[in-house]
Amino acid sequence: MNGCHDVGGMHGFGPIKREDNEPYFHEKWEERVFGLFFGCFAGGHYNLDEFRHSIEHMGPAYFQTSYYEHWLHAMQDLLVRNGTLTHAQIEQRMREFAAQGSA
């Protein structure tokens, strides 16, 4: 079955953008997502196939978001689906941090 991730052979994505001396992470939050991915995986909150499956079902949003945003999507999707967190909890905590002016 084709999905948004199955881009092999597709046209129209433009030039390959490379960066000299590229860092492994471009934003602090990317580091945290990377670490969280392992933490939640080690804790048994999802397996790798579920994680990929979640990303592969992002649809058009897949192309509008960055690599570690894909990871964030899958992590949140699976943590909410398995009952570990709720969207309301996450949104509430985000509002609290925003009010404190920290991110």
């Binding site: 939050w29 945290r32 964030l72 570990t84 967190l85 909890q89 996450i90 949104e91 905590r93």
Partner: peptide, 9 residues
């Protein structure tokens, strides 16, 4: 969002 998830977990 990342910070919120890390904090809750």
């Amino acid at each position: 969002r990342v910070k919120a998830i890390e904090s809750l977990l």
